[in-house]
């Protein structure tokens, strides 16, 4: 009896999956999740097409973007880690040279108003140049990359499909990569289901209380629904031996020293370690930092020193509730979405 049920279930499941696959094969383009605000990305100058997206995906996983053809974007932005370099505080690039910052997720970038931990890059279309040319990352030059693609047997045809001409242009290259990156939308967490009222999904009491706590104690910076305010803040980490001054390196304004972009709280389960230099290995360590280790470094965010108290006060039960809510922000489907995987 049990076996019959199982077979029938499997039958239905297979049918369902097959259907789902067909749906996925029609390219829907960029779709704003209903609970997300208008994106910041300039779609007017980069219309998303199936061919453009697919070219971008191929480029994202293309090792020829690095000087010795060993490293692709996907080497440090791994889908199963929500496009971060899971387990790596810092990433090793070409020739195992070490970087100075933790690889940020390629996730919901269409809503980013700037890129990198210091916001030094202002347009996603210009972003890709930085890791490609960085000495410790891919250490290649853009003219070389474009020449490699020109000499390849596949790219001229792919550029023609995407842009109507076999010519390998900088615009075609950069905008295709942008198309892939903006398509990497993570919006299928439990939180999103609850917000979107899908299938009557609701938070547990613990998650709901956790949400209220996050709104009260973290929400000024980690603002819903993207869980970042896209601003730069110093959260009181003691500068490490590299003395990374963050946003200051870009603006060279004293009041930007030690500030970094506020990261999203989405997909935390897959993106450890945390902070700009990946120094905190677990979520508990992050909460420990905010509750008891915030240091009065220059430009410490005023929100972390209210009423003469450093950091955020949390009871043990509040921590548990916050963690329960943060768990609802994990979107496993984002990690498994075949559209974003190397083909």
């Amino acid at each position: 009896m049990k076996r019959t049920y199982l077979i029938v279930s499997l039958f239905f499941l297979t049918g369902f999956l097959a259907c789902k696959k067909e749906v996925m094969e029609t390219f829907a383009g960029f779709q704003r999740p209903t609970n997300f605000p208008e994106p910041a990305y300039h779609f007017a100058t980069n219309k998303i097409t199936k061919e453009g997206f697919e070219l971008g995906r191929k480029l994202f996983y293309e090792v020829q973007l690095s000087a010795n053809n060993t490293i692709s974007c996907g080497s440090c932005h791994i889908q199963t880690a929500a496009f971060t370099h899971h387990g790596h505080a810092l990433s090793h690039g070409i020739f195992d040279r070490m970087g100075t910052r933790n690889a940020p997720p390629i996730m919901n970038l269409a809503w980013n108003t700037s890129f990198m931990w210091d916001g030094g890059i202002v347009d996603l279309d210009l972003q890709s140049i930085a890791p490609i040319t960085n000495h410790v990352e891919m250490d290649e030059t853009m003219p070389n990359v474009l020449n490699k693609l020109r000499n390849s047997t596949v790219y001229p045809a792919l550029f023609k499909k995407a842009w109507g001409s076999e010519e390998i242009t900088s615009t075609g290259f950069l905008k295709a990569l942008s198309q892939f990156m903006v398509m990497c939308v993570s919006s299928n967490s439990k939180y999103d289901s609850v917000m979107g009222n899908e299938n009557g999904k609701v938070f547990t009491a613990e998650e709901q209380e956790g949400r209220v706590l996050v709104q009260q104690k973290c929400g000024a910076c980690h603002t819903e629904p993207l869980f970042t305010d896209n601003r730069f803040r110093n959260n009181g980490l003691v500068p490490s031996s590299t003395n990374d001054e963050g946003r200051y390196l870009i603006t060279q304004l004293d009041n930007d020293r030690y500030k970094f972009r506020v990261p999203s709280l989405r997909n935390l389960a897959y993106t450890a370690p945390y902070m700009h230099d990946g120094r905190l290995l677990t979520l508990d360590a992050v909460l420990d930092h905010y509750t008891s280790q915030v240091q009065a470094t220059p430009n410490l965010d005023p929100l972390l020193q209210q009423g003469g108290i450093m950091g955020v006060q949390l009871t043990a039960s509040e921590r548990t509730k916050i963690k329960a809510f943060l768990n609802t922000l994990n979107d496993k489907s984002f990690l498994l979405d075949r559209r974003f995987a190397e083909q």
Partner: peptide, 20 residues
């Protein structure tokens, strides 16, 4: 950004990629 302003071509070494 064409010609001398092409950040992947003529201007590749006249452009700060990390600080647009």
């Amino acid at each position: 950004r064409t010609g001398v302003l092409d950040v992947t071509g003529a201007a590749a070494d006249m452009y700060w990629s990390w600080n647009s």
